[in-house]
């Protein structure tokens, strides 16, 4: 069934494409007179009709699916700056700024990272509430939703470090620390390498 060429020399794939794409034959005159081609065509047509039937079968999303999603989103949106761990004994809320601080410390544990910014770090002209709070969502580098967190972190690397490798190390370390310290799921870690420093500049 899967030989490269039929005995008449026509490639098997040509007939397969004709059947599966419902295309006209490449050489209609040959096909009209060649029993091998016609037999293969009939056999493949029969086999492929099962896939065609499945493709024609109408599929609709269950009606409750979107309701369930939107209920969950409304629940999550009620507390956007906290991650929430729900247990039968009660809820544990972890502020985004805590997750950000853990991410920054985890990144700084990687030897070639000179400094990690954001995610709980704040400049002098910002208050902590603006970094991770109800009015400061855009200012924080950590997004939390239920038990999932997304971390955007800016790091300054040592000059001479292989940067893609460094980013992978930072990512792995953040995943590991946040999971082990908070029990939250890290959905995404985006590492922005914003500068490189020489040893002299660090000193």
């Amino acid at each position: 069934m899967t030989e490269d060429n039929l005995p008449c020399g026509v490639p098997f794939d040509e007939i397969l494409d004709q059947v599966t794409d419902h295309r006209p034959p490449r050489d209609p005159r040959h096909q009209a007179t060649c029993p091998t081609c016609r037999a293969t065509l009939a056999e493949l047509g029969d086999v492929w009709s099962l896939i065609d039937e499945l493709a024609a079968h109408p599929v609709q999303a269950p009606t409750h699916l979107l309701h369930a999603v939107m209920d969950r989103i409304r629940e999550l949106s009620a507390q956007p700056w906290y991650a929430v761990l729900t247990t039968p004994q009660g809820d544990t809320k972890i502020a985004a700024r805590v997750v950000g601080a853990l991410a920054r410390l985890a990144a700084e544990d990687v030897p070639e990272v000179s400094l990690a910014l954001g995610g709980g770090h704040h400049s002098k002209d910002q208050s902590l509430a603006e970094v991770a709070g109800p009015s400061g969502e855009a200012a924080t580098d950590v997004g939390v939703s239920g038990t999932h967190v997304v971390v955007d972190i800016d790091v300054i690397a040592d000059l001479g470090t292989h940067l893609p490798h460094l980013a992978d190390q930072v990512r792995a370390r953040i995943h590991q620390d946040i999971a082990s310290y908070t029990g939250l799921t890290v959905a995404e870690v985006n590492v922005n390498i914003v500068d490189v420093l020489t040893t002299e500049r660090i000193d």
């Binding site: 999303a61 979107l66 997004g143 939703s145």
Partner: peptide, 15 residues
């Protein structure tokens, strides 16, 4: 899978 995908889309929309 679709529920998880839609929730992830909501979380990922800002990006």
């Amino acid at each position: 899978a679709v529920q998880e995908a839609f929730l992830n889309a909501w979380r990922g929309l800002p990006r």
